[in-house]
Each structure stands twice: as C-alpha cells, then as structure tokens.
C-alpha cells in the first residue's frame, strides 16, 4: 500500500508538472529572466501547490501517525547555515542555466530526449559527489558548535 501511494504521489507530481508547463525550460527561464519577456506562470504553479499544502500541514500537525500508520516527519532542523545558503545558490545557478530543477528533469526524462538524460546523469553525479564535498567544507571551515548540519 505504501509503495502504491508513493507511486500515486509521484504520478500526481509529474502530471502536475506537465500540465503546469514546468517541463518547458523557456517558462522557467522566462520567470527568472526579469530583464527579458517576463513569464509569471511559475508563481501560479507555486501558489496552486503551496496554498492547499498549508491546510494539509495543519491536518498533519494533529496526527501522530499517517493515515497508513507510518511515522510523521518531525524534528525539523531549524538552523539556517552556510550549506543551506551556498547549496541553494549553486542549485539556483544550475536551475537558471538549464531551466530545469530535479522534478521536471525526472518528469520529462522518458520523453524529453537525450538532453534530459544527460542533465539527469550529471545531476546524479553531483548528488553522488556531495557527501565528499560536505566533508571537505566541514574540514575547511568547521561550524563553531562542532556539529554537522546534516
């Protein structure tokens, strides 16, 4: 059941990305390009997803386990640290250059052509390299508390 609902969630996510036009890199870059022909679509996509999720979080907050009896997420990290800011800047730079973030890149992988396959391959390589990079950053500039932020 758990795997079926995960498949359903992934399917809704992918279908939503397609319907919203988020697999079109021109729309994403059109939103980021404030000096070009600005495209506000992404704001409507975000709004459509975020507003109902605000209600969903209120339901989630009242529950100890999920409707399938699984543990709910908790103990969210609170710390705004270097890795969050640096990582988001790097991610954003890649997002702007190609007009792709992980969701749409995977959603269009099966029909988008070799460009999507190459992007996803490079993205996977970046993900595989990150634990080593985290360790390197930690050694170069350890946080004052001596804790890792992961």
């Amino acid at each position: 059941m758990r795997n079926f609902t995960a498949f359903l969630a992934g399917g809704l996510f992918g279908a939503g990305l397609l319907v919203a036009g988020m697999v079109d890199t021109a729309k994403v870059q059109g939103w980021l390009d404030v000096f070009g022909d600005w495209d506000p679509t992404l704001a409507f996509v975000m709004g459509g997803a975020v507003l109902p999720m605000m209600g969903v979080w209120r339901i989630a907050a009242r529950r100890k386990t999920s409707y399938l009896g699984l543990p709910m997420p908790g103990d969210f990290p609170q710390l705004v640290d270097r890795n969050l800011v640096l990582g988001s800047l790097l991610f954003g730079a890649g997002w702007g250059l190609a007009g792709l973030c992980p969701g749409p890149a995977l959603g269009a992988l099966a029909f988008g052509g070799w460009q999507f396959a190459l992007f996803v391959l490079a993205m996977g390589a970046g993900m595989a390299l990150t634990p080593a990079l985290r360790g390197l950053l930690q050694r170069l500039d350890p946080p004052p508390t001596g804790q890792d932020d992961a």
């Binding site: 809704l12 459509g48 997803a49 969903v56 339901i59 709910m72 997420p73």
Partner: peptide, 25 residues
C-alpha cells in the same frame, strides 16, 4: 498559461498531500 499553471500547481500540491498524509514523508 496561468490557468494551467494553477491547475498543475494544485496537482503538485495533491501529490505532496498524499505523500505527507499517507506515507508520512
């Protein structure tokens, strides 16, 4: 485009809701 953006956004939100409320993720 903005209407389809909104519709697609709602579907994305529905996916996130299923994953959170059923899978707890």
């Amino acid at each position: 485009d903005w209407i389809w953006g909104l519709v697609g956004g709602l579907m994305i939100g529905a996916g996130a809701a299923v994953y959170l409320l059923l899978n707890g993720r």
